[in-house]
Design a protein around this nucleic acid. Structure first.
Lengths: 338, 338
DNA sequence: CTGAAAGCGCTAACAA
DNA sequence: TTGTTAGCGCTTTCAG
């Protein structure tokens, strides 16, 4: 079936295409009678305006691009849920770019703005280089970062330093002195949260005069299994930590697995605290640091929508707080509790 | 910054727009010298073709629409991961339509095809009425259903009857005779998996002469908490079930919660089996029926890609099997194991 | 091999 | 109030 065009409607209704366009777009400058004729023609032809043509003519795509890395990461998905919830309710379509490789990252970041594919861009959990930001600026496509920082861009971020601090402090207050931290690679230039949480960890330790033990910090690629292995390494130490702070809940689950493999009782033998408060953390009763994942997506897309209707003079930053959620994987260490 | 157009490039290179177009599209009918001139102009102007214009001209959107209900549902997300993985690697953009309300369902299903927004449509876990399918057919946009059935459409589905059967059979073989089933509403016209799994449950019971006890089947809206409540109802019965088959892992988690609230030991006091094998099921060691969630997304999008390049004479159906994953929430009932 | 020109379906400015 | 027309930026004949 070949779809009806505005021209077919015009012919059928015996009017010009301009008039049809006016009716479609609800212009008041059409007489009741003509409007009705056009409406009838639209009805019988089952006409609906071709969006692509409309977009070209308007110079607007009515589309928001969302770039996410690792669609496999539960916290990214949770943010995305927030994004979806507001975009679905808006007049915009949402096109999703999943970035898993460096090549794809580059093509997305370069081509999407340049080809005028989208009216606005939301970038989730992906840190940009200055050069990339420059190019973005030049394309003047409104852009908002969620869970990623850059001085020149609008962003919704979480206070990771505070989160790392709270987590570590919680363990210290329970009486732990030997506290490990397992995380993604600290030197990943695109992952500031890892560093920030580490900073918080460090701050809390320093505050009470516990000196940093480099061997208590392990890093690897993100993942449950990697975390499991790092935990074993940590527990193989002469004087192993009595508590482990995991960079993410996913990793905390790996820690728990390692503990189980060694028949270690959590929290009696080993305290574990995660980060994110994903759903699984609740199921598994993992003590964790909650960050507003869903909400960060909501706030980010709302900010973008605002930005698209009226650009701000200077980039706006929204900082979301974190919160300790005490559950069953943390307790005082044996030597203290006993 | 106003982006360069093909005309700017043509002027700069001193050629016609047609030639530029040929270069962009890799037509061999351009001399090496001209090609180089054009390439240079493109380079200096940082030109990239406007996608919307290209789409209008070609009459193709280079876009695949994906309609999903309940982006909150972990198994839907898992399928989506599969979809994303193949679309991201193709030349198509993916636009995501999240459908949470009836109104949105209707607008999506009606407008997306009619407005020529997409070249192909993937519908996940959403069952269509005949009328909706008719309209889809008339729009002749290639469509594939994932986890949803319809006689006239291409589809990737899972053998839910078999899954329900396997689950129930497993419990029977462990010695259970009083087996409950908690699920979404059976009479939801858009949710055939609920009915199918129920059919499997029924078949397995009938096979060994256990008569169906209506009070052993509870239904409610999907959700963990609803499942928790249904479980309490079941356990309040005079002779409560010794095993519960939950329609989904999410619901199985609710069952587990109820058991914990009653200080019931799982699996000693109560066996629980779920369905889907989402990640949480693994963490929580829930015995479940695995279905190829990710794979269903992969298969569905590949089928769609195929369909878009050459339509099939008759709708294709891919049936994915299910598999029992034994973990720690099922065991023989006390009276038998005793 | 290359340029000119006619669309793709719509919007909006301009006349009438 | 309405019809006509010139684009939007690209692709693709059709001549040459």
């Amino acid at each position: 079936m070949t779809t009806a065009t505005i021209r077919d409607v015009a012919r059928k209704a015996g009017v010009g295409v301009g008039t049809v366009s006016r009716v479609i777009n609800g212009s008041p400058a059409v007489s009741q009678a003509t409007r009705q004729k056009v409406l009838d023609a639209i009805e019988t032809l089952d006409f609906s305006p071709n969006l692509v043509a409309r977009r070209l003519s308007l110079g607007k795509t009515q589309t928001i691009g969302v770039i996410v890395p690792y669609f496999t990461n539960p916290s990214v998905v949770e943010r995305l849920r927030g994004v979806v919830s507001v975009i679905a309710a808006s007049d915009y379509d949402m096109v999703l770019f999943d970035v898993e490789t460096v090549v794809r990252r580059e093509t997305c970041l370069r081509d999407v703005p340049r080809r005028r594919q989208v009216d606005g861009l939301l970038i989730v959990s992906l840190e940009l280089t200055d050069e990339e930001v420059d190019r973005l600026d030049r394309s003047d496509i409104p852009t908002v970062l969620v869970d990623a920082r850059h001085p020149d861009l609008n962003q919704v971020i979480v206070d990771n330093v505070q989160g790392g601090y709270i987590a570590t402090k919680h363990l210290i207050e329970l009486g732990h002195r030997r506290i490990g931290y397992i995380s993604d690679f600290l030197n990943d230039p695109f992952n500031s949260p890892v560093r920030d949480r580490y900073t918080g960890y460090y701050k809390a330790l320093a505050e009470v005069g516990i000196s940093l033990r480099p061997d208590y910090h392990r890093q690897a690629l993100h993942g449950r299994d990697e975390a499991r292995k790092m935990t074993h390494d940590l527990l193989d130490l002469q004087d192993p930590p009595t508590a482990i702070f995991a960079y993410s809940d996913t990793q905390a689950i790996g820690v728990l697995e390692a503990a189980r493999e060694r028949a270690l009782n959590v929290p009696a033998d080993l305290s574990v605290i995660g980060f994110d408060d994903i759903e699984a953390a609740e199921y598994l009763n993992i003590t964790t640091i909650q960050q507003a994942l869903f909400d960060s997506g909501v706030r980010g897309s709302k900010l973008l929508l605002e930005l698209m209707s009226a650009s701000f003079p200077t980039p706006r930053k929204i900082l979301l707080p974190t919160k300790l959620i005490k559950r069953r994987t943390t307790a005082s260490p044996r030597e203290v509790a006993g």
